[in-house]
Design a protein around this nucleic acid. Sequence first.
DNA 1: GTATGTGCAAAGAGTTTGCAGGGTA
DNA 2: TACCCTGCAAACTCTTTGCACATAC
Lengths: 145, 145
Amino acid sequence: MADPQARLEQMLARLKACNFRLTPQRLAVVKILAASVDHPGVERIYDQVKEVFPTTSLATIYKTVALLKELNEVLEIRFSESSRFDGNKPYPHPHVICLKCKKILDPELAGIEKLTQEASHRTGFRIVNHRLDFIGICPECQTQE
Amino acid sequence: MADPQARLEQMLARLKACNFRLTPQRLAVVKILAASVDHPGVERIYDQVKEVFPTTSLATIYKTVALLKELNEVLEIRFSESSRFDGNKPYPHPHVICLKCKKILDPELAGIEKLTQEASHRTGFRIVNHRLDFIGICPECQTQE
DNA sequence: GTATGTGCAAAGAGTTTGCAGGGTA
DNA sequence: TACCCTGCAAACTCTTTGCACATAC
């Protein structure tokens, strides 16, 4: 894991560089995210910020997180607004998803089993499932750029 | 991709084996999912079913898809109810997620770059991002089983 | 001082649920 | 016929937005 202090300074520097103001609420959210090892959700960030600033609103957390995401200072772990389904291959397999046209392909990839074993071995988890999605631009949409 | 006809029969057989009734709406949904190559969302399935049964409701689609998911006949592509954030490593990296306690770890895994290149090469996509999540049970939760 | 950020409340999207009526087996 | 399934509407969750007030710079 990266050094939380360094991450904090990096994030604050980015905010300042882009001329965003440093409010107490923002600082609290940034601190939590910089030190996060457990990938908190909005609600958990909210709870922690409220301990220091009880009047903070959920909307502020959402806005701050969205801002940091915009600045590429946080990673959002989420698939999409809504679910997509695969009835043809109802077992885990890799997807390649086009950002523009939302097309989803199923590439044949070797090496996932090995990666799964490696993950299991390193963490002690019993892995029962996985999700591997590559996000990018498909050939058709590339020509329209 | 699997043979759509075979998938259809497999799905219908599973429904029958579990004593679920075969209604026209259900059949329509199953047909669409069995032949799906593009991972449709609920709304798209809904639109297609309505072409044949205009009175069909969205709720029925949701219920049918949930049933098929229960029977392991469709795969849902979705992260979770709500987003989780990582401000410590704000770039794509693998996650290992515990189904029980929702803990998320960041294992160090080799071989993702290679897999990314392979996906790009096979599909022609320009890959800008990826998501690799292993879902399972963590060591602590395993002992509580 | 001024533009930006906050907090509140309402709106919006996606999904789930309860219930009465209708259709499958 | 008996139970399951459907369709409708309401409820629910997560997230976004509009607006008036507050505040960082």
